[in-house]
Amino acid sequence: MPILEVESLSKEYKGKGKMNVFQALNGINLSVDSGELVAIMGPSGSGKTTLLNILSGIDTEYSGVVRIAGTSISEMSKNELALFRRQRMGFVFQDYNLLDSLTLRENIMVPMVLDDQEVEDINSRTDETLSLFDLGEVKDKYPYMVSGGQQQRAAISRAIINGPEVIFADEPTGNLDSKSSSTVMKTFAKLNALKGATIVMVTHDPFAASYCNRVLFIKDGKMLLEITRENKERRAFFDRILENLAFIGGGEDDL
């Protein structure tokens, strides 16, 4: 059953003058089923992050339809979207997006605190998430006191604290070394396997993408192709991703 549906999604950036229009997304159609772990790949400037920002309701200037769990987010006001984002979506960002003035534990509970949920619920779910991602020892430390990997795991914990229907991740391993990247991706895979979480991830990193079930490639704002892992080994899927990347092209910095 699709949890995320996108129809004829287009986005233009207008500059000064009538001719100065940049087509960032051009008629994208997409469907993600519940429990899928999907990666979106493409070269720099292909529209990956624009797509993710629209799917997650951060960017509201577009044409087309985006439905999450049957609800069209295109018709929501910015404040409704903010609440929808907080209560029904989870986010993981390249720069972790943790608040410097709060400890990791406090950062994780922020969405529930903003929702004014029951104290017992907040505490029990925060503690449960902390132990799931092995953050017990550093829970009372501030973000700048822990490693990038630990910060990203805290960010993932925060993303799932409200039991979201879909988790969006924007370059979640972009700032991490290979060991931390591997830990973070294993965390996503665990989340997907154990909790059936739907995860949509934008990444440059073929290694990170190889943990997914499906990889979508976009270029110049258009969906070029998609590949699925099926029952392949991760290593074989990784090679296939590399082949496709070579096929669609892109700068060295995209790899």
């Binding site: 404040n79 903010a82 929808f84 907080r86 986010f91 997006n97 410097d100 003035s101 969405p111 903003l114």
Partner: peptide
């Protein structure tokens, strides 16, 4: 610092009233 903080909270989801 405030701009960065509210930028981060906005990504999580925060209403104008909040």
């Amino acid at each position: 610092r405030e701009k960065i903080k509210f930028g981060k909270l906005n990504k999580i989801g925060i209403t104008s009233k909040e």
